[in-house]
Nucleic acid binder design. Structure first.
Lengths: 298, 298
DNA sequence: ATTACATTTATACAAGCAGTATAATTGAAA
DNA sequence: TTTCAATTATACTGCTTGTATAAATGTAAT
């Protein structure tokens, strides 16, 4: 049963948070979640794959929330970026994901190591694209350097601040501090023209770009975003618009967050959407339906 | 025999460089160095202590070389600092010490973890003191933040540059790049007045400040530096001065680098120094002899 | 209700790890 | 030659991840 599997994932995550990945034995996980060894290896081929499952279920949520913050917003708005960073920082803190990743990044499991490395690169890549949004194409040659500096700055200032005292600067203060520094740095480096890493390198880091998300979920994210933009344009502020957005959001969540999306729900809600709103936004609605179907019947 | 022990240290270090710490079993080390298990545990109480022994023998050299670069130089000279950084970067690259530390920092061995953490803090502390030399007391409130940023910047830019292509920017280029950035950053942050971490925190990080060096070695470093300065003042450029400096350097090296400093050598050389040079620099020579004796008969 | 099939359990097992214990052997100095 | 410390070989403990298998349980269709 899928519920049991998810329970193992959650239990293991809690144990990892408390004791770390290495220090948590499979025996601990069996006792913690009340299953037998046979069942465990029926669910996960190895301890490393269990970690990947934990990470995926974490990352899926982050990615989703992160994109939601950007919908209908100006992608060059630095405040949105800061909100996205704060979200990630909070979630990371709660789930201790960065600490666990640090631990796993140097483990003996080569597959796991590679997965983590790809993950870190994905994170850099996302930040790079956002920097492009914010600083503009003209700064492009300096943005990979800047992103790497920004990323490491955030991580370490946060780490030392946390170690120094738990009541030190808040996450948002650290983000703003780093952001202020990097804005100056981008300007300064543009003026001096110094470059270490060319942004084209980013593409070579992803020979076979594997998004850790199901591709159909990406499609869904895009079509949802488009549809919501269209709805916002077509309808005035009010109950009608709000309800439409809520419906779309719910469908998206159900498809992306649940392991077994409830078809009957989605089909019913989609019907409502189509009958009540499709006239104004026909093209987007069609795309939306298509991507829903490719999620349901992949 | 001490020679055998050192051989085990060297062999293990090579194996760690090739395969990593975790992936190298004690069995591998036994086979590699041709000793039996009993002997191994006679030398080292645990695998973790072996790593600490490796690190100490590495760090002792670094510290020594690093201080030598500063002797008789202006401590505010940024070029000297860059040379020191380059030295460390090269040595780290060769011995893969940073990579190994990363691995060990998240191991199961709590003692080892604590040792590594103290080590990293020592590294930050050293850099902070050098920043104080370079940027001056007036920038003090911003220097801990700056050091943390500089440290993480160097590490990560270097890491990505190395991953990108081995023939990318050289170490010295990266150091200069980061140094240029941090000089601007210190100015900029002084102007804006933003601070995350107060420099006073540094002292609380070392409740019982344990220098990983033997304290008598620190003494020796100081007295050597003093003596050499005095010699440079007292004698004109020429053969006499050069030979004196060479003698002092040799004694220092023998005391700090060798596990069994050869007394007869040191005593003989010291006698030469005293008879030929002591008249001009009596106070320094006395201190020098004192610190030599405390190294020899500690 | 019975048959059929998938899931789960308990348990034993293999191969590896760090570290302990011990009796036999070797080396070097007195 | 004696004495004592260092070294070796080997067996052992207790832990790890992961495999194998027979018995028990649940579930769904006939």
């Amino acid at each position: 049963m899928n519920n049991r599997r998810q329970n193992v994932i959650d239990t293991a995550h809690k144990l990892f948070i408390d004791k770390g990945y290495q220090a948590t034995s499979i025996q601990d996980i069996l006792e913690g979640s009340g299953i037998s060894k046979g069942t465990f290896y029926n669910y996960f081929p190895s301890k490393g794959e269990l970690f990947i499952a934990i990470f995926r279920s974490f990352y899926k949520r982050i990615l989703h929330e992160r994109e939601k913050l950007l919908v209908d917003q100006d992608s060059a708005d630095i405040e949105i970026f800061i909100k996205q960073l704060e979200l990630q920082m909070m979630e990371n803190k709660q789930s201790k994901m960065l600490i666990l990743i640090e631990e796993v990044r140097v483990s003996n499991d080569d597959e796991l190591k590679q997965f983590i490395n790809e993950t870190l690169l994905l994170s850099i890549r996302w930040m790079y694209e956002r920097f492009l949004d914010i600083f503009g194409e003209s700064k492009k040659p300096y943005l990979l350097d800047s992103v790497i500096i920004f990323h490491s700055m955030m991580t370490h200032v946060n780490h030392f601040n946390y170690r120094a005292n738990a009541k030190g600067s808040s996450e948002i203060q650290i983000i703003r501090y780093c952001m202020n520094r990097i804005v100056h740095l981008v300007d300064e480096v543009t003026e001096s023209g110094e470059q270490i890493l060319s942004p084209e390198l980013i593409d070579t880091w992803f020979p076979k770009f594997k998004n850790h998300l199901n591709p159909c979920h990406n499609e869904l994210l895009n079509s949802t975003s488009e549809l919501k933009k269209a709805i916002n344009k077509a309808f005035p502020c009010g109950e009608n618009r709000t309800r439409a957005i809520e419906l779309v959001d719910f469908i998206q969540d159900e498809l992306m967050q649940s392991d077994k999306p409830r078809k009957f729900l989605i089909e019913s809600l989609l019907l409502t959407l189509k009958t009540q709103y499709a006239v104004q936004v026909p093209a987007c609605m069609e795309n939306f339906e298509k991507s829903i179907n490719s999620c349901l019947y992949q």
